[in-house]
Design a protein around this nucleic acid. Structure first.
Length: 663
RNA sequence: GCGCCCGUAGCUCAGCUGGAUAGAGCAUCUGACUUCGAAUCAGAGGGUCGGCAGUUCGAAUCUGUCCGGGCGCACCA
């Protein structure tokens, strides 16, 4: 259910282009529905060449068969009969039968300047986006960053389009990965909880665990009997009592803090952290288990390799499934698998489990926003309501698509088809390393691997690129560049700018690839600040600001754009084709975000940001703003600069990339 | 064996529900800083869109098939 209301979009995101596009679609639909029997879908496209106008409709081609006429003739009839559309100046027929539409330039620019208060659509309900979800047993690496940056950017896109969003970061604090590090501390290093507390206080605890986890994995390899230690530890952690459980909590909680701090460096924050320990203690699984049995979603297997287990039949989540495809949900020893817990968790997200966590504040960010964490005991205070989402996006690596299918099948088998429909696995491919980057980082690679475009590395063995190391490296490189350009600025100032640039470079690098592209991470490429990179876009925003800074330094005052630049003046200035094309390109930010949201590709926003920056750089090169003698033209160029600046800054904001003061 | 994904310029990648002459960045070569102006801009070269067949006014895009590569298919997560 959608309701229309009049509201302004966040920031300066201008939606005039999208509004006119909609108006064209509706106008053509209304006209044609009175003309033809079967109305084809009306596509409004961008012409191949910008000189063709701003909109192209290939509708005549779709009608050719039905009307048994040449597309060009149909296009001519539509062009002649179509009633005027507000904002559209002309219609032309081109190519084999395209309808090309041109905007009324003066009116369009005036609309951009005044920020037309157009009716926008608010979608009720809450979108839940789950991302990050790093096992709390070691430092975050580059693969985790892809997850978090993708998720965080998607959240920003949703919010820019007026959606209410809740960001969840699920913490598997009772799983085998935590158990492994517990075994490392407890059995290999013989450390007490107090020893571990001291290590946590000493700092870089996530790095310590990174190495210890690798050492423990190696130990398992050479001591087959040690696997029993892992099973025992896992059991003790799940039961929640004793030294082992204490160690588990200490480790997981400390590592979560490390992860939150790492992510904050990239501007990534969370609303709530549900934890597996609470899912266990609050009996979420027990509730889901009863329901799954009751509704026949799972059954007790009596024969074959899965005898004694509760399984979900493969036919629920896979076509042409045989008995061997069924998925174990409860093991023969009575313990529940991860997927089982995930079904319970997914139900909770939709508010259909009938249970809830308790919460307490975990961290307060600088802007006052609080990240809450799930607890078993009631918190002494008021907490927000979490869960009860109407749509759920799980940002999880594509390799887990099979398990995500099982979770969704679980909802469907439980009789929640709507929620199953609204459960989206927001999958993405892994981050691998280029062979030369492996060599640079002293990661061993075989001769065979050296011939491949990328190499998969194992976090289990302690190989890979740690997130904080990478951010440090980028900051260092940026600092070097800033120092060489702005020696006059204070050191603290330069450090802040370097941090912004590092964030821009990293976030853009992770976002420029579409989700199902494997990223072959190359250190040299990631450290580049030229070409299609975050710093390129940041630099364009900085250049736009520089013009206003210089303007103020010369003691000049800005004209009131609204009075100086009426539709007629805009029309005169925009007769300049080059200028007009640049303005149109700049005004498509909202459309870019909208379509990126529809296709689920944050990369499309990154791409748009880059082309927007390119457009501004062309503008910057082609027009002298400050030295322009003609007052109207100067006002116009200043307004263009200001418009570009706002569009650049808000698009960077969607990407989570800061705009530095100078570069 | 079954399932999912990928194959586009020397390299790394875009290409929206089929649309007009297939685009970027990097690399290579040439040119542009007295200016709001070089983390930048202008230009050049570089393509049988893995192969074949089909669908139609039209295919990088949809279908089939083959070749090549990746990832899944645990009582791990």
């Amino acid at each position: 259910m959608r309701r229309a209301s009049s509201r302004k979009l966040p920031d300066t995101m201008n939606i005039v282009f999208a509004v006119i596009e909609r108006r064209i679609r509706e106008g053509v639909t209304a006209y044609l529905s009175g003309q033809v029997a079967e109305l084809p879908p009306i596509a409004v496209e961008q012409p191949k060449e910008s000189s063709f106008g701003e909109f192209a409709l290939p509708v005549a081609f779709s009608l050719a068969r039905q009307l048994r006429k040449a597309p060009r003739a149909i296009a001519a009839e539509i062009a002649a009969g179509l009633p005027p559309i507000a904002g559209v100046a002309s219609i032309e027929i081109a190519g084999g039968g395209f309808l090309n539409l041109r905007l009324d330039r003066g009116a369009y620019a005036e609309g951009l300047l005044r920020g037309e208060d157009v009716p926008s659509v608010i979608v009720p309900g809450k979108v839940i986006v789950e991302h990050t979800n790093i096992n709390p047993n070691k430092a975050a690496h580059i693969g985790h960053l892809r997850n978090a940056v993708l998720g965080d950017t998607f959240v920003r896109m949703l919010r820019a389009c007026g959606r209410k969003v809740e960001v969840q970061n699920y913490i598997d604090n009772t799983g085998v990965q935590v158990a492994d590090v517990v075994v490392g501390f407890h059995q290999l290093e013989r450390k007490t909880p107090d020893d571990v507390r001291a290590l946590i206080a000493a700092g870089r605890f996530d790095y310590y665990c990174w190495d210890l986890y690798a050492a423990t994995s190696l130990y398992y390899k050479s001591h087959s009997e040690a696997k029993q230690l892992q099973r025992d530890a896992l059991h003790d952690i799940e039961s929640g009592a004793g030294v082992v459980a204490e160690l588990g909590h200490l480790i997981a909680d400390a590592i979560v803090e490390c992860h939150l701090t790492t992510m904050l460096r990239l501007g990534i924050t969370y609303d709530v952290l549900p934890r597996e320990s609470e899912i266990l203690h609050l009996q979420f699984w027990a509730t889901a288990f009863e329901l799954l049995k009751e509704r026949g979603a799972i059954y007790l297997e009596t024969e074959g390799k899965n005898a004694g287990c509760y399984v979900m039949a493969g036919s629920h989540f896979r076509e042409n499934a045989g008995d061997e495809d069924s998925k174990v949900i409860v093991r023969s020893n009575g313990t529940v698998t991860y997927v089982g817990k995930d079904i319970a968790y997914q139900m909770w997200k939709f508010g259909i489990l009938g249970k809830d966590f308790h919460y307490k504040p975990l961290r307060t960010y600088d802007d006052g926003h609080v990240a809450w964490v799930a607890t078993s005991e009631p918190y002494d205070g008021v907490s927000p309501q979490f869960g009860h989402g109407t749509e759920v996006y799980n940002v999880i690596d594509s390799r887990q698509s099979y398990l995500q299918d099982v979770v969704v099948a679980g909802l469907r088998a439980l009789g929640f088809p709507d929620q199953a429909e609204k459960s989206v696995h927001f999958g993405y491919e892994m981050v691998a390393l280029t062979p030369r980057t492996c060599v640079e980082l002293e990661i061993p690679v075989s001769e065979e691997d050296k011939q491949k475009p990328y190499v998969l590395v194992s976090g289990r063995l302690g190989l890979g690129v740690k997130a904080d190391d990478l951010i440090d490296k980028l900051t260092e490189k940026a600092r070097y560049e800033v120092d060489s350009r702005h020696a006059e600025k204070s050191a603290a100032d330069r450090a802040a700018v370097a941090r912004d640039i590092a964030v821009g470079a990293l976030r853009y690098f992770l976002l420029k690839f579409t989700r199902n592209t494997v990223i072959a991470f190359d250190l040299q490429e990631a450290l580049s600040f030229e070409g299609e990179t975050g710093p390129y876009v940041q630099y364009a925003a900085v250049r736009a600001r520089n013009i206003f800074r210089k303007f103020a330094e010369r003691g000049l005052t800005l004209p009131d754009f609204a009075t100086v630049l009426d539709a007629a003046a805009m029309g005169r200035q925009l007769a300049d084709e080059n200028c007009w094309q640049l303005l149109v390109a700049a005004s498509k930010a909202f459309k870019a975000i909208e379509s990126a949201l529809a296709s689920g590709e944050p990369a499309a926003v990154a791409k748009y940001a880059f082309t927007l920056a390119q457009s501004f750089n062309v503008f910057y090169h082609d027009y002298q703003v400050l030295t322009e003698a003609d007052p109207e033209k100067r006002a116009f160029l200043l307004w263009m600069t200001d418009y570009f600046r706002k569009q650049l800054e808000s698009t960077l904001g969607i990407l989570g990339i800061p705009a530095p003061e100078y570069m």
